[in-house]
Design a protein around this nucleic acid. Sequence first.
RNA 1: GGGCGAGUGGCGGAACUGGUAGACGCGUUGGACUUAAAAUCCAAUGAGCUAAACACUCGUGAGGGUUCGAGUCCCUCCUCGCCCACCA
Length: 802
Amino acid sequence: MSEYNHHKIEAKWQEYWEKNKSFLVAEDRNREKFYGLVEFPYPSGDGLHIGHLRSYTAMDIICRYQRMKGKNILYPIGFDAFGLPAENYAVKKNIKPQETTAKNIINFTRQLKAAGFSFDWDRSLSTTDASYYRWTQWIFVQMFKQGLAYKAKQTINWCTSCKIGLANEEVVNGVCERCGGEVIKKDKEQWLLQITKYADRLIDDLDNVDYLDRIKSQQINWIGRSEGAEVNFQVAKSDQQIKVFTTRPDTLFGATYLVLAPEHRLLEELKNNISNWDEILKYIGEAQKKSDLERTELAKDKTGVEIKGVKAINPVNNQEIPIWIADYVLISYGTGAIMAVPAHDQRDFEFAKKYNIEIKQVVAHDTDEEVFTGEGKAINSGEYDGLTTAEFKKQITKWLTKEKFGRAAINYKLRDWIFSRQRYWGEPIPLIYCDQCDWQPVPEEDLPVVLPEIDNFLPTEDGQSPLAKVEDWVHTKCPKCGGVGMRETDVMPNWAGSNWYFIRYTDNKNDQQMVDPKKAEYWLPVNWYNGGMEHTTLHLLYSRFVYKFLYDIKAIPQKCGVEPYQKRTAHGMILGEGGIKMSKSKGNVVNPDDYLTKYGADATRLYEMFMGPFDQAIAWDEKGVTGVAKFINKVWALQAKVVAGAVIDKKITTALHQTIKKVGDDIVNMRFNTAVSQMMILVNLWEKAEEINQDDWQKFILVLSPFAPHLAEELWLAIGHQNSLCQVPWPSYNPKLIIADEFELVVQINGKVRDKINVAINITQQEVEDLVKKSDKLAKFLTDQTIKKIIYIPNKLVNIVV
RNA sequence: GGGCGAGUGGCGGAACUGGUAGACGCGUUGGACUUAAAAUCCAAUGAGCUAAACACUCGUGAGGGUUCGAGUCCCUCCUCGCCCACCA
């Protein structure tokens, strides 16, 4: 037997699968479908990341397994190619993003094929193809028509380096998630999508899907639903009111001042009544200049200014209380104003202490602490004294509503989604502005609005999209009145294309509609979606929202259900050698090509599965790859021992059937590392055997095939099969054969292991006791002792208490 | 500060609903083959005590508890990782 040559054999089977379209799939109503999905890559110039390979291998194994279990498998791949990195790269190298993207997709495709994934390549797509983004634009138009897309002047996060507005989700620690640039607050007209309208459903529907708990809780926390009340405080000697949101309306009697965010609109209206307007103006200016980073850095020392000449009236006791302005109150949450209860809120307490504002206890508590944020019986609250927090909340909310001083209210941390970017490399927003008719959607038959190819795609200093300079593109007709129309020049964010790509895979060539409902009905929802934790509050949440919208307008058949993904799992990150994050600057980036070439796809796949628990972060270790490469060579060499009708050793039969069961179970539970080790155990046993029975061998090849498909195909061919094993059924195991007929009985005395005896299975307790009494080893522990108790665990151990 | 998770040999990690801790792999050591090396094969490999083996003792972040029996369950504490964070 010649040595295993992965170069030759892997290339051969990759060619075979491609030529025979082994993984081409179509709807088949007679077969149960299985839709396995992985996050499609962003085709960067660096090529595929080793982490992509891990996630894709895992889902490839699951899909290959399900295929062998008889299911009709959809396992697609595509490219998420719009976005800033391509554009930044294009700017740097002065090459059109169209060109770099096309080049990168070719490179990614080559790499993905070299890894031996069972993708149906006929369903591939790129978000940058006009035939695809036509429907991304179509979805936007539907949202616009339903009133979910709206333009508004917003205080937004502005990246000073990328020169674009960012969603909250894209600001990390006060800096831009993409480039690390400084983020400041800026007023800007932006298109927004009303994701907040779906906030409750995005929380509630999580009950009906199978997501990892940490994914669910992260989404719930991100949406950040909190229930409470809105309270209106009358401004004394004015017809103005200040609305605040609070989760503790029961502490209303302890509200000793109000605080407005510096950006609060009411300030301007009260201007004439404010005696220290200059001071206020100065504070507003300072707050505006601060970046998010500075604001949070200064979190410990709160600042503020009292608004002189204006007071608010606390509706529960008609007391006049001071109004302050402070940047610890955020304009973007709730109403942008709070009632401060320093006795029962940490932040209000710090502020009140610093500025000597009255602190009034209204919740009884035993602790010595000056601030008590827990629940308890009400005090100093007039007729409400003695009520529990929960009961007080109920009654006061009722009273507020009756007296028109407020109402029950729910607030979310989630904000509407800023959906425009002042850049070039994205889907043009398909809207036209007309002086007469305001904003009008581009008629559906005119979609797509093709992104014009231009030479100067640099972002502009004034924050306008580079498209604004393409005059013959901007100037158009109003679709409603036929008059002068101007195209929207902002483009969509990079999330737009990934919102719905999994829908398009089910019908990627349709030029009549987004998707054929019949096809969608067969394939959707996705059975299993694996991806990264970093997308939990971005892509995963966004795409659930967009899917729900499409469901509501019946673009998705009702039969598909309200959730796009039945199951969501997440892989752990692969770290560089030594356990630090891979990065170019540290020079510890692992290039998949090196491993695919040196060790082969099967070895790389096996290693990535064997290296550790799939859901945990783990450091790359080249030495580990040599271990699985040895395993492959061992398996290859074992062929020489295969004999048809060879005598089967009972121990090996047991191990084989255990392997069939364990590998199958482990695949479904994503416990790939133990699946690989179980196969190694079987192979180690065979190494010691004289001969291997061919039927057994055949079963093993099938079990191995999802992990190391090239090797398995070649072995399959070698024992005389003509066709690929991709569609061959997964072998079944015999539950009776899994149990060995002998076992090692562990004898414990007072819980300590004192002896191990080989005995036949299903031995009775009486027989065990007799055996124990006869044992010489145990004699010294048992003589002169009275046996108090004997605990026997069948087929495992016996514990004698003396 | 809040949420989630994790601490097991030299290393990555196994251990089902409490039942032999350290599977499998890496590394290391010794041996075989070789002129030599690589590759391959064989053996050993938690610590202590032993010349060695048997035996024994100790061992899953620390301390307590429940149990015949705890890596696993309960309480207290420590450390680390990730996500969020002035969210009213």
